[in-house]
C-alpha cells in the first residue's frame, strides 16, 4: 500500500478494486466534503460591480433556476472530487476526474452571459480534449503493467513508462483548468461564490491527488 501520503487509515474493498484513505487523501477528501456542504447550504452572494466613470455601483441579479442548476453541478463536482480522492484504481480515478471536468463546465456554462458562455465553451474544449491523454495514460499503464490497482503498482516490480505518468498529469491539468481561467471572464462576471469555488477546489484537489499517484506508481 502506498505510504507516500502517510500510512493507510482505511481500506474498502470492492472485489479486486480498492478504495483507500491515507492521512493525505483523507485531508483532501474532508476538504471536498466541507466545501460541498457549503455549496449545498450557502446562498450565493450578491455581486457588486462598480460603474465606470462615476461613484455608482450596482448589484448583479441572478435567477433562482440558474442558481439551482449551478448548485446541482457544484454538488456533482464535489461528489466526483471525493470519489477521485479515495480511489485506489487508476481507471476509476480517471473517470472521476473526467466527471469533475464536465461538472466544472456545467457550473460555468449555466450563467446567462455572453462572455461567460464564451469562456465556458473554450474551457469545455480543453476539458474534452484532455480526456485523451487522461484515459490514454491509464491505458498505457494497463498495457505495460497488466494492472491498474495503485496498491499493486506501488508494491514495486513494475516499470510504469514516464510517458504514461506524464499523460495522466497532463489530462488532470486539462480537466482542472479552472485556476488557469481565474483571470478570465467567468470568474469576474459569474456570481455564485460557493459554486465558482468548487471549480477551483476540485481542480486543485485532483491535481494534488495525481501528484501522489504519479510519485507512488
Amino acid at each position: 500500500m502506498p505510504d507516500i501520503g502517510g500510512d493507510p487509515l482505511f481500506v474498502l474493498e470492492f472485489g479486486d478494486i480498492l478504495h483507500y484513505y491515507t492521512p493525505y487523501t483523507i485531508t483532501l477528501f474532508l476538504l471536498a466534503l466541507i466545501f460541498t456542504g457549503l455549496a449545498i447550504a450557502s446562498r450565493p452572494e450578491r455581486q457588486i460591480d462598480i460603474a465606470f466613470g462615476g461613484d455608482a455601483y450596482y448589484a448583479k441579479e441572478t435567477t433562482i433556476s440558474e442558481m439551482r442548476f449551478r448548485r446541482f453541478m457544484a454538488i456533482a463536482c464535489g461528489l466526483a472530487t471525493m470519489g477521485a480522492m479515495g480511489s485506489g484504481d487508476i481507471f476509476n480515478f480517471t473517470l472521476f476526474v473526467s466527471l469533475v471536468g464536465i461538472a466544472n463546465i456545467g457550473i460555468v456554462a449555466a450563467v446567462k452571459s455572453r462572455h461567460v458562455l464564451n469562456a465556458a465553451y473554450e474551457y469545455g474544449i480543453v476539458a474534452m480534449v484532455a480526456t485523451l491523454p487522461l484515459f490514454g495514460g491509464a491505458a498505457l499503464v494497463a498495457a505495460t503493467t497488466g494492472t491498474l490497482a495503485i496498491s499493486v503498482l506501488a508494491g514495486g516490480g513494475f516499470a510504469v513508462p514516464l510517458v504514461a505518468k506524464a499523460f495522466l498529469a497532463l489530462g488532470v491539468i486539462g480537466e482542472g483548468m479552472a485556476p488557469f481561467y481565474a483571470a478570465k471572464a467567468e470568474m469576474f462576471r459569474a456570481p455564485g461564490a460557493p459554486y465558482v469555488i468548487m471549480c477551483s477546489l476540485s481542480s486543485l484537489l485532483i491535481f494534488l491527488r495525481v501528484v501522489e499517484i504519479v510519485i507512488t506508481i
Partner: peptide, 25 residues
Amino acid sequence: ESILILFAIYMLHKIVEHGFGLSSG
C-alpha cells in the same frame, strides 16, 4: 507526517483566500 500534506494545505490556502474574496460580493 508527510510533507505532501503540507504541500496540499499550502495549495488549499489559495482556495480559502479565493473564498474570502468572492464571498462578500
